[in-house]
Structures are given as C-alpha cells and as structure tokens.
Design a protein around this nucleic acid. Structure first.
Lengths: 97, 97
DNA sequence: TCTATTAGTCAAGTTTTTCTGACTAATTGT
DNA sequence: ACAATTAGTCAGAAAAACTTGACTAATAGA
C-alpha cells in the first residue's frame, strides 16, 4: 500500500526548499524571530532573500507574523501549530545521524 | 542544549534537494531502479537530469550502483543502509499530514 | 548492414533562484 | 535638521539549476 503519486517528504522539501528557509525555520524552533536579527545572525544572507523566505514560511503556514508595536516598529515571527508539528521529525533525524 | 550550527534536516534537504531526487528516492523505496526505466516513468524528466540525480544520490550514500550484466548492459540502483534509515522519517511525515 | 537497446556524457541554451543596491516610511536620538 | 533604526519593496544583474539535442560504445535482432 504505497502512495505512488504523493509524498509527505516532497511536501516538507517544498516548504523548506531554498537557501535560507531551513536555517530560518531552525532558528524559529528556539523562539520568536525578527527580520533584522535574522539578517545579522545568518551570515551571507541578504534583505531580499530573508524577506522572501519569511513570506514563504508564512504562506506555507509554518510561521505566523505578529506586529508587536508600531512605535518603534517591532514585528515577530513565531512557529504555528503546523510548524511545531515538525519538531518530532527534526528530533528523529537527529537520532539518525 | 540546542545545536546552533548543524541541523539534520538541512542534511536531509541537501541530499534530496532538486527537481527529481525526491521522486527517484521515493521510487527506490519500492525496490531496485534503473536509468531508462526512471526516465520513462518520471514524466517531464530528461537523461541529463536523471543521470545527475542518480550520481548525487549515490555520492550522498543513499543509493548504490550495481552492474548486473554487461551483455546486455544492465545497471541497478538500490537503497543503501543509510538510504533505508530514512524510511521511518518518511513514515512519520505520513502520519503528520 | 541497419536499427534498437542499454547507460550514459557533453556543450550550449533556457529558466529559476539568488544577490545587489537604491529606495520607502515612520519614529528616535543628537 | 540629520542620521539611525525598524521592516521591508523593487528592478536589474549574477549565479545556479535544469533542459535540449547531439553524440558514444557495446551488444542484439532483422
């Protein structure tokens, strides 16, 4: 009883594909993340790519954006329930390698 | 005790990144695979891309190449132990989604 | 002899992804 | 008034990934 035309791993790969999304998601596992903070801690990254990655992670429902304060502007991204559901997968992979 | 600079998921993503590797790997979960057979069953694919994907899966140690017969030429690729170790991850992801 | 099959390789071109640098807009600090 | 911080956007360039079509080399079948 194999699934021939769908694959959950392909879904995961799609959600986390690209140069920066895996790193951003992993940092988000430790708590709230912010645009400029990510930009500084992920070396080699750039505004545009981080912005696109955050938007995609949001669109896939793994992160949710939250405006904390308007003065001064403060926006945070947090794992959604869907995002948190991936934690066991990460843990399982850790045991493997 | 978080791992800040390594990530097993990033490893998985790297091994299976690209347009065809996930599909090839998934087909390999069902048994031996062959170059021309893949080419026919994966619609939209092409020689070059399948060849590169197989080579990369081999280099990452997920598949192993085996020459069965030289006349007529018959080459097979099978999951390695490392490749098989990913099966539970696929199963876990299936339960998730 | 000619064509097909096997499993590829190679160079060139196309497409997709990523990066760079300029710009926005509101607010705070000097 | 001027610079800095926040969180971005936009267009164009550069880099990476993917595709195409021609080719190889050994063997089998008509």
């Amino acid at each position: 009883m194999e699934s021939e035309n769908t694959c959950p791993v392909e879904g995961l790969l799609k959600m986390l594909s690209g140069k920066w999304k895996p790193q951003i998601f992993r940092i988000a596992l430790n708590g709230s993340i912010r645009f400029n903070t990510l930009l500084r801690q992920i070396e080699g990254s750039n505004k545009q790519s981080i912005a696109v990655a955050l938007k995609e992670l949001e669109e896939f429902g793994l992160l949710e954006k939250k405006v904390i304060k308007l003065k001064p502007l403060h926006i945070e991204y947090n794992l959604t329930e869907k995002g948190k559901s991936l934690i066991p997968v990460f843990q399982q992979l850790e045991h493997l390698v």
